[in-house]
Amino acid sequence: MENLARLVQDAARKLLEEKKVDLVIGFEKGSLPLRSTPCFVRKAEDAGKLTWNSSCENNLANYLRKKTEKVGVIAKGCDARSIVALIKENQINLDNLYIIGVPCGGMIDRKKIETILNGRELLASEEKDGWLILKGNGFEQAVRKEDVLHGSCATCRTGNPVLSDELLGEKVPEKEDDYSDVAAFEAKTVAERAAYFAEQMSKCIRCYACRNACPMCYCEECFVDCTAPQWIGKSASSSGDNLIFQAMRAFHTAGRCVDCGSCDRACPMGIDVRNLNRKLARDVKEIFGAEAGMNLEDKPALNEFKFDDPQTFLVKE
């Protein structure tokens, strides 16, 4: 990891020195233990601020839309897929972009760490050979990184960026598709599923952190903000409306969502936001054989119509 951080700094410095880009977007050390924070570097001498570790959780593709400068971006697997998906939607101009790809073995889930700490406060942390050392007042505990990976990282198959101008470090091993979580949830009854979502959505405070953290949620006017017509209520007190917000968001990102988990991570209330996106990613793959942001050639699944598309949703007669 330290080595990768140095490679990231070197690559960024070089790009800025050679004036290939005006800006490099990466991560720097955050203000809290186990946190990194997005960092915007415009001078070569500032490249030393950049870092790389298991807490570089944000999807930096989110910062690339509407950029007029020439931008270099440090992209892990999910960032790269989002970038590809955004290029296909004409939101990013590839000519103005330089992608520094970093193979990613997964980022940690702060909420899992919180559960392990169970109320104790984390004051410092260290990362070493696949282990995290959590330190606080009167305790020190080691946890295996793979046990605290975020769900989206644990099931991610594309840790190696699908598109990059240069690739740093060594590639991570490929993984198999695993949608067993979706299948397990589908096996529940309608009432059980409804009860689960009602409970989850009752926590929602409508801060829209999920939406704003999502690189694909870039509508000028989100349907929840419309007043004429007003599609759903503005109050946070209706778990039904909160669920409709999440379901519509999931539906709108179907075939576009790369399951980076940003929405889930951003939620301050710990709602299982990703559940719906996973379901749709699985369905899109199963029904249309498509996955978002895997390459520049495939059209986004829902932008295309084929005569032999399955139509299982039609009324059976």
Binding site: P38, F40, I205, A266
Partner: peptide, 16 residues
């Protein structure tokens, strides 16, 4: 011009 750059414009800070 630079302080806000990483803000994603959600209301987690204000609502909490």
């Amino acid at each position: 011009d630079s302080l806000w750059e990483k803000c994603i414009g959600c209301a987690a800070c204000t609502y909490l």
